[in-house]
Amino acid sequence: MAPSHGDSALASGSRRMLLTSLETRSTVYVGGKGGVGKTTVSSGIAHALAARGRRVLVASTDPAHSLGHLWRVSVGDSPVLLAQPQGGELHGVELDPQATLERHLAAVRATMDRMLPERMHKAAREHLDLAAQAPGSHESAMLERIASVTELTGTEFDTVVFDTAPTGHTLRLLSLPERLTGWTERLLANRDKSERYQAAMSSLVTGRHRDEPESELRQMLHRRRQRFAAMHTDITDGSAGFVAVTVAERLPLAEHAELVAELDVLGIDLAGVVVNRRAPSESGALLKARSALEEAALADQPPAAPGTPLVSLPLMAEDLTGAEQIARIGSMLTG
């Protein structure tokens, strides 16, 4: 059970670094390749933070939710209390974008009904349903949901820990605010131009033109831009940190390296790296051989740059579900 670094003083130093790094964040994203143990690590981190007296929410954004399975309780789209360690609180939620999408559709429908003549309602609604099924719509709804959960920090919770979907999905999702800010700005620029032409046209004869009140359309675009910009700030201003989870094998380590590089491009802080399920070197020939392979892979592909907290979790024989086990993982990560 000793960390495979073989140097337990160094390892405990890293764990304290990880804890320090996480304690300053209001949001923590936990991500990595599918199946590396993101849900376990995120709940462990959340528990460790709660154990220091904080109110913590662990939120699963992976459509294939496993938070409930991990805690062996039923978790849904609204937070439920999972544990209350040492005066802190740990809540869990499995985000369901479908509900968000439907609320959004309902709002758009209401606007349509208000703005369009009666005879067009049916056609417009059918068209709307089609748009709702567009591939990006589900993703955007998840983004909205993440943003609304993020807004809970500082009021209901001190920290939100996101248990994210596998790497590709998560990176796309995190890059959305920036891309959508650009998208909204282009549309606004387009509206600006169109309205400038309109103003010049209406003033051709009289030289006077009324400053039209900002149209509903532009108000909406303005609100959107502010929201996207705020989301972008939320994930890049240092209040958010990303914990990348991997296992010490060559393929996952390669994907991990890409994730780290991409986070840097997106301007998201890498708060720490967790190498999960390290094989112990002293438990039989098979595991010893694996341990040596892992050491070699880690030496070839170092998962974290110097200075980034790097914590290893050993391969364990127990079934890691339930509150007790999660508490144990939490202290192994940070203690």
């Binding site: 703005m115 591939p135 990006g136």
Partner: peptide
């Protein structure tokens, strides 16, 4: 045409139907 922002564009549609 795939629209990365379909979720957000749909709320602009009512203004265009006319």
């Amino acid at each position: 045409v795939p629209d990365p922002a379909a979720y957000y564009t749909m709320e602009l549609m009512p203004y265009l139907y006319q």
